[in-house]
């Protein structure tokens, strides 16, 4: 990942949510508790690449995505876009960033304003940014619809969301996301609420957009199969930290971290003759408030030793671009 190729650099990102302690507890002097949703996460998103952020609930993947899209403020760390920190952007620079980074959400049934027509929904980012005049915007909306494969565009312009299927609504959401010609699209579980037979179309569309528009994407999902299908690189998160990251093919076919191995082994396979390996993971996902000392995966890991219970591993390099946070991979 060369310097000038990266669009976004995420450095030591932290997001802690404080649990408001009651009045009495504050007087008594009880320690304030935090949910460490994102706990020191660093990665780069490079041009024309689809980076997958994978993890289960509580992994912090959605929070990370929302922080990058400026929907939430980080507690610590920085996000650098074109050499500037986006946390403190304001004025013109902020507007520029907003145009450059857009987001697509999970629920197709709530992603569009029910009172807006399709045209109006897609036009909204243009209107907010004072772009062009009515005619030019109409053409831009039409173009976005066609790029989202809703053709003929005129047939969709004046429909309301409730007249569209889930897949169509998601395409409208994608059209809305690309109408400003962004360089980065953050997609949070864009297909998990769609029927399986329609997912392929949306996934293929995202790939096409990357190829034709040079769009980079942060694809957030818990579904490793879809990540395998469209992501160039994958970042595996667990309880707010990165466990493993690297080129998708490598990480998924030769996983190093015990969590990654267990995750992959847990995915059901649609070939009835294939017998899956047992997923080597014990126990349940712990409460996010009581994140264990040391490696946070240790309580569930069969390979954990004493060191894992007390010290937290860094990301160690395995191969070029492939890293894992596990003492088993620590270079001697």
């Amino acid at each position: 990942m060369t310097e000038n190729n990266s669009i976004i650099k995420v450095k030591n990102l932290k997001k802690y949510f404080s649990l408001k302690s009651g009045f009495i507890s504050t007087i008594v002097g009880k320690e304030e508790k935090f949910v460490r949703a994102v706990d020191d996460v660093s990665f780069d998103i490079t041009r024309k690449k689809i980076i997958g952020l994978a993890g289960e609930s509580g992994s912090g993947k959605t929070t990370t995505g929302e922080i990058i899209a400026l929907l939430q403020k980080p507690t610590d760390g920085k996000i650098v876009f074109n050499g500037k920190k986006i946390n403190d952007l304001s004025g013109k620079a902020l507007v520029e960033f907003r145009r450059a980074c857009q987001m697509v959400f999970q629920d197709p049934y709530e992603t569009l304003n029910p009172r807006f027509t399709v045209r109006r929904s897609i036009e909204e980012p243009l209107l907010i940014n004072g772009w062009g005049n009515e005619n030019k915007r109409f053409e831009k909306v039409k173009d976005a619809l066609e790029r989202a494969e809703l053709r003929p565009a005129e047939d969709f312009m004046y429909r309301f969301p409730h007249e569209l299927s889930g897949g169509q609504r998601q395409r409208v959401a994608i059209a809305r996301g690309i109408v400003l010609d962004p360089v980065l699209l953050v997609a949070d579980e864009p297909v998990s609420m769609l029927d399986v037979s329609i997912r392929a179309g949306i996934l293929n569309l995202l790939r096409k957009l990357r190829d034709n528009m040079g769009l980079s994407m942060l694809y957030i999902s818990h579904d490793l199969s879809t990540i395998k299908y469209i992501c160039d690189e994958v970042i595996i998160m667990y309880l707010g930290r990165i466990m493993e990251k690297g080129p998708t093919y490598e990480v998924l076919s030769q996983p190093v971290h015990p969590y990654t191995k267990a995750l992959i082994a847990s995915v059901p396979v649609s070939d009835p003759d294939v017998k899956r390996e047992e997923a080597e993971i014990k126990g349940d996902l712990p409460d996010q408030i009581d994140i264990p000392e040391g490696c946070r995966f240790a309580p569930r890991c069969f390979s954990a030793n004493d060191r894992c219970q007390s010290e937290e591993p860094e990301l160690y390099s395995i191969k070029k671009g492939h890293q894992a946070a596990c003492f088993l991979c620590e270079p001697k």
Partner: peptide
């Protein structure tokens, strides 16, 4: 908290715009 409101914020909508154009009609 609905996604379309978040989408508006990501696109740069001001709070006033969101209140009167997104939330009020709904």
């Amino acid at each position: 908290e609905r996604p379309y409101v978040k989408a508006g914020r990501v696109a740069g909508a001001t709070n006033i715009r969101i209140i009167f154009l997104y939330i009020l009609p709904n």
